[in-house]
Design a protein around this nucleic acid. Sequence first.
DNA 1: GGCGTGACTATGG
DNA 2: ACCATAGCCACGC
Length: 112
Amino acid sequence: MTNLISDSIRDDIYRIVKIIPLGRATSYGAIARSIGYPNHSRLVGKILSNIIELDNNIPAHRVVNSLGILVAKNNFASEDKMQVLLEAEGIVIKNNRIVNWRKIFWDPFEEL
DNA sequence: GGCGTGACTATGG
DNA sequence: ACCATAGCCACGC
């Protein structure tokens, strides 16, 4: 039988992304660390791209890279959708990057 | 079992 | 602040 890591952590990722507060955002690495797989930030993004296809309600736009840069734009319906969704929550974006990232950043660990 | 890939990250210049 | 580089490792050929 195959025992893929991606299968075992999919639900954890889903659950965490679901509770990212409106107007805040977190990173792939932060999520990976919070679920006990600190070296799998890449996998988090990959799984997120799968999840968004099944549930367009999940706030996947609130996940960016460790610098606050929107690196997932290609996975949304339109090129500017991710940015539009974030700006609609009051998040300011300049040159593809979240302004005041330190303040906007939400750490999943603080929710445990 | 090797190899390329990726919604990544840390570090150094 | 920007860019390059190396490290990372599951996953799908």
